[in-house]
Amino acid sequence: MTARIDHLVTVGTFSLDGGTWDLDNNVWIIGDDTECVVIDAAHDADAILAAVGDRRLLAVLCTHAHNDHIGAAAGVRAATDAPVWLHPDDTMLWQMVYPTDAPDAAANRPSAPLADGQRIAVAGIELEVLHTPGHSPGSVCLYAPALGTVFTGDTLFHGGPGATGRSFSDFPTIIDSITNKLLTLPADTVVRTGHGQNTSIGDEAPQRAEWIARGH
């Protein structure tokens, strides 16, 4: 069967540095009628499980560990036994959501690390892990050349880089990540983001100098 991309939007909050904000998150499901992976289990485990349906869930892949992107990961894993994969540089953010002193801490640790260059097979295609720190130290993007798309989490949006004004983030680092890991992809690559609308590498690349001038 041919791999496809399913999309749903879940609603919740993002909390960091003492503040909380309402927001919508994109959840991406890549697979066929038999198996799939979830990119970012955001807010609503029941909605994600309904979208997965009776397919075998191979993994939950976390683009980073801000609470709005991982809040439903434990619920999805409990229902499916699917492993949860996270870049280890975001462990401290994960532990803000799933504390090490909680009774269920052992069950709620990430199952396996994501690493730059790693390839994850699903439904006859591969997702390549691109480590893109900046929004957070362990941020990753997932590139699917067979589908002509890259899933960028909060690293790159329509109109520019992800936010870098909070703890564990850094603007020069995210610019380096986007420049060296994303803007080198084919111009027609569709960028599917963690929030908001899609864009493309070709649409975003010409704006790099403007981002740098803005400094955020």
Rank of each mutant, 00 (worst) to 15 (best):
W28S: 13
E126D: 14
Q95I: 00
A205V: 02
A163Y: 14
N198I: 06
G159D: 06
N198L: 05
G194W: 07
I201W: 10
Y143R: 04
G71Y: 06
F151C: 04
H69T: 10
Q207C: 05
W21R: 11
G202F: 01
E204Q: 14
F171N: 11
L127K: 12
T20A: 12
A78D: 15
W21E: 13
L185R: 01
I5A: 05
R214S: 06
L57T: 11
G160Q: 09
L127G: 14
T91D: 13
G165I: 00
G215N: 09
L93F: 08
H66E: 13
L142W: 02
R4L: 13
L114H: 13
C141E: 10
T132N: 06
F151H: 04
L127Y: 10
L182W: 01
C141Y: 04
G148P: 15
A65R: 01
A41N: 10
W85F: 11
V27S: 14
A42Y: 10
G194C: 10
L142M: 07
H43A: 04
T10F: 03
A79N: 03
N108H: 12
P145V: 01
T91P: 00
G117A: 10
E128G: 11
L49E: 12
T132W: 00
F157H: 14
A41L: 11
V129F: 06
P137W: 02
